[in-house]
Amino acid sequence: EMEYEEITLERGNSGLGFSIAGGTDNPHIGDDPSIFITKIIPGGAAAQDGRLRVNDSILFVNEVDVREVTHSAAVEALKEAGSIVRLYVMRRKP
């Protein structure tokens, strides 16, 4: 069973403070093209906020749908998102 969360982060000097993997051209798990959080960087915006978790998958960055995009398109969406970034994420319920 999945749960969904909308997380708004303010981009810090060091960016959003997380790493991603995945994409249609580089699936992270099997042939699932989802964009997954692979690392939360200590002291970064995501770590300070505390809600984003490793293995969360990002569905939307602001209004941009990143469910079926290449890795570089997801990176671009995050880069272009401005200083306030709304992430709509999905994760397995614990």
Rank of each mutant, 00 (worst) to 15 (best):
residue 49 D to I: 04
residue 54 V to W: 06
residue 52 L to W: 00
residue 92 R to P: 08
residue 23 G to K: 08
residue 1 E to T: 01
residue 37 I to S: 02
residue 10 E to T: 11
residue 77 A to N: 15
residue 34 S to G: 07
residue 53 R to H: 04
residue 66 V to Q: 02
residue 91 R to S: 12
residue 38 T to N: 15
residue 8 T to Q: 02
residue 5 E to L: 14
residue 11 R to A: 09
residue 92 R to N: 14
residue 56 D to H: 02
residue 40 I to C: 06
residue 38 T to L: 13
residue 35 I to E: 01
residue 57 S to D: 06
residue 78 L to H: 03
residue 48 Q to R: 09
residue 14 S to R: 06
residue 90 M to R: 11
residue 63 E to R: 07
residue 60 F to C: 12
residue 27 P to D: 07
residue 22 G to K: 04
residue 38 T to G: 05
residue 73 A to T: 12
residue 56 D to R: 00
residue 59 L to I: 07
residue 2 M to N: 03
residue 19 S to T: 01
residue 37 I to R: 00
residue 55 N to V: 13
residue 68 E to N: 04
residue 37 I to V: 07
residue 74 A to T: 14
residue 69 V to P: 14
residue 16 L to S: 06
residue 78 L to W: 01
residue 56 D to T: 04
residue 86 R to W: 02
residue 41 I to A: 05
residue 37 I to Q: 00
residue 83 S to I: 15
residue 76 E to R: 08
residue 42 P to K: 08
residue 22 G to M: 04
residue 77 A to L: 06
residue 57 S to G: 13
residue 72 S to R: 13
residue 91 R to E: 04
residue 90 M to P: 14
residue 94 P to E: 15
residue 27 P to K: 06
residue 3 E to R: 03
residue 47 A to T: 09
residue 48 Q to W: 04
residue 26 N to M: 08
residue 5 E to C: 10
residue 52 L to T: 02
residue 31 D to I: 07
residue 63 E to Q: 10
residue 3 E to Y: 11
residue 63 E to N: 09
residue 83 S to E: 10
residue 63 E to F: 06
residue 2 M to E: 02
residue 82 G to Y: 10
residue 91 R to L: 14
residue 4 Y to W: 03
residue 4 Y to S: 08
residue 14 S to Q: 13
residue 81 A to Q: 05
residue 18 F to R: 00
residue 57 S to P: 10
residue 4 Y to D: 05
residue 48 Q to D: 03
residue 50 G to H: 09
residue 13 N to W: 05
residue 73 A to E: 12
residue 91 R to F: 14
residue 28 H to G: 11
residue 48 Q to G: 14
residue 87 L to W: 00
residue 17 G to P: 04
residue 13 N to Y: 04
residue 7 I to K: 00
residue 27 P to G: 08
residue 49 D to E: 05
residue 59 L to N: 14
residue 42 P to S: 11
residue 94 P to F: 15
residue 80 E to T: 04
residue 34 S to N: 15
residue 64 V to T: 06
residue 15 G to F: 14
residue 88 Y to K: 11
residue 62 N to A: 10
residue 85 V to F: 02
residue 63 E to V: 09
residue 22 G to D: 10
residue 42 P to E: 10
residue 8 T to L: 08
residue 55 N to R: 12
residue 61 V to D: 00
residue 57 S to H: 05
residue 28 H to I: 15
residue 72 S to M: 10
residue 2 M to G: 01
residue 54 V to R: 08
residue 73 A to W: 14
residue 29 I to A: 12
residue 22 G to H: 10
residue 12 G to A: 09
residue 54 V to N: 05
residue 92 R to H: 04
residue 52 L to Q: 01
residue 36 F to G: 09
residue 25 D to W: 09
residue 64 V to Y: 12
residue 49 D to M: 03
residue 80 E to K: 04
residue 91 R to G: 08
residue 82 G to N: 11
residue 25 D to L: 06
residue 71 H to F: 03
residue 32 D to V: 13
residue 64 V to S: 11
residue 12 G to S: 12
residue 54 V to A: 10
residue 75 V to Q: 04
residue 28 H to K: 08
residue 84 I to S: 11
residue 67 R to D: 02
residue 21 A to T: 09
residue 91 R to V: 15
residue 7 I to Y: 15
residue 35 I to P: 13
residue 27 P to I: 15
residue 85 V to T: 06
residue 7 I to V: 10
residue 92 R to C: 04
residue 63 E to A: 09
residue 17 G to A: 05
residue 48 Q to A: 04
residue 87 L to P: 00
residue 90 M to W: 02
residue 69 V to A: 15
residue 26 N to S: 13
residue 42 P to M: 06
residue 71 H to P: 04
residue 60 F to G: 08
residue 94 P to Y: 02
residue 79 K to I: 01
residue 79 K to T: 01
residue 34 S to F: 07
residue 44 G to F: 15
residue 82 G to L: 14
residue 80 E to D: 15
residue 61 V to S: 03
residue 30 G to T: 13
residue 73 A to P: 01
residue 37 I to G: 00
residue 10 E to N: 08
residue 1 E to D: 13
residue 83 S to P: 05
residue 10 E to R: 08
residue 30 G to P: 12
residue 10 E to C: 06
residue 33 P to F: 12
residue 26 N to K: 12
residue 54 V to Q: 06
residue 15 G to M: 06
residue 76 E to H: 09
residue 74 A to H: 01
residue 25 D to S: 10
residue 11 R to G: 12
residue 76 E to L: 09
residue 71 H to N: 15
residue 88 Y to R: 11
residue 57 S to M: 12
residue 39 K to N: 15
residue 3 E to G: 07
residue 32 D to F: 09
residue 52 L to N: 00
residue 65 D to L: 03
residue 15 G to H: 04
residue 76 E to C: 07
residue 91 R to A: 12
residue 41 I to R: 05
residue 90 M to Q: 08
residue 12 G to C: 03
residue 9 L to W: 07
residue 91 R to K: 06
residue 2 M to Y: 02
residue 68 E to P: 04
residue 14 S to M: 13
residue 2 M to A: 01
residue 83 S to M: 11
residue 70 T to C: 15
residue 43 G to D: 05
residue 14 S to D: 06
residue 81 A to P: 15
residue 74 A to Y: 04
residue 6 E to F: 02
residue 53 R to S: 10
residue 70 T to V: 06
residue 25 D to C: 09
residue 25 D to P: 05
residue 79 K to H: 02
residue 63 E to H: 09
residue 61 V to E: 00
residue 3 E to Q: 03
residue 93 K to F: 02
residue 81 A to H: 03
residue 9 L to S: 01
residue 68 E to Q: 05
residue 35 I to T: 14
residue 23 G to F: 10
residue 50 G to I: 03
residue 18 F to E: 00
residue 44 G to M: 06
residue 7 I to S: 01
residue 59 L to T: 14
residue 50 G to E: 06
residue 14 S to E: 05
residue 29 I to Q: 13
residue 70 T to F: 15
residue 40 I to T: 02
residue 44 G to R: 09
residue 92 R to L: 05
residue 52 L to H: 00
residue 8 T to C: 11
residue 12 G to P: 14
residue 42 P to N: 15
residue 39 K to A: 12
residue 68 E to C: 10
residue 54 V to L: 09
residue 29 I to W: 07
residue 1 E to V: 02
residue 67 R to C: 06
residue 58 I to W: 00
residue 94 P to G: 05
residue 26 N to I: 13
residue 71 H to G: 13
residue 88 Y to N: 15
residue 3 E to V: 10
